[in-house]
Amino acid sequence: MLAVQQQPATTPEQPSASLPDIPSNAPQHCPGTESELAGKSDACNGCANQEICASSTKPKGPDPALPFIRERMADVKHKILVLSGKGGVGKSTFTAQLAWAFASDETTQTGVLDLDICGPSIPTILGLANEQVHSSSSGWSPVYAQPNLAAISVGFLLPSAKEAVMWRGPKKNGLIAQFLKDVDWGYLDYMLVDTPPGTSDEHLSVVQYLKESGIDGAVLVTTPQEVALQDVRREIDFCRKVGIPILGLVENMSGFVCPGCKTESKIFKPTTGGAKRLAEETNVELLGAVPLDPRIGKSADYGVSFLDDYPDSPATAAYLDIIDRK
């Protein structure tokens, strides 16, 4: 015991509260919340947070689901994550448009994986709102919007769209693992992964599970105002921390063209230079800017492809331009 010379614990009187590895109210000799011993060392006995530390440590040994996921993902050529720090910037809409665009080539097989477990939008946007998943001997069959466009979402598993999915992290992780190992996609050229806002359980899990199979990269979606950009900076930080290449940044809802007078106005003003400046600052490619068109929202509500229905909209041109650049 004497040999275990612990580092002196951080001084209990910190000038300002910050987020240290060792919390300021931790017992003496706290091994640190990120440590292997978190929640298990002698010092942890009696600490109010012992249970949390013990449960938040990563599961020891490889996850038993990993080999199955690797096998399933061997048939998926490209895996692209659609991320954004903030909610409601158009991740799902962008994912869906990208999927429709890929699927317009009949020889391309595309799959959409919706990881937004508490608020799945993909079923509505792809026009699959009342569909159910079928299970067969080879796994769960995804729901097809088109013969070459498949989708899976927690929305297909719920008995009613009204029901709230009130799940904590571990349960979400379980479902994500199941989506990755049990869904019978068949061969896919592209798998687009739509994520919930933030940087939490869902994001960590999908990155962890797909690490071995490799993720091609992430597309970050933002809106022009600083409140959204702040969250995107955090997301870029996240991608760099976990080592996912960033394919680029898409600025959504940039400018609005009035259908009456055709004048463009900015609803969400880029007060700090918008995505353009962010892209320059962080050295991320700006893939393009999509103007706000009320018909985009309407297409999403009715579950039809905006690109097919309104080929003349400036937003369509912007979308196709972005898609071409990938």
């Binding site: 987020l19 938040s56 940087t199 939490s200 996240f238 976990v242």
Partner: peptide, 11 residues
């Protein structure tokens, strides 16, 4: 302010 907070549920 650009630091990401990457936390799972218990934290």
């Amino acid at each position: 302010k650009e630091d990401s907070v990457v936390w799972r549920g218990p934290k």
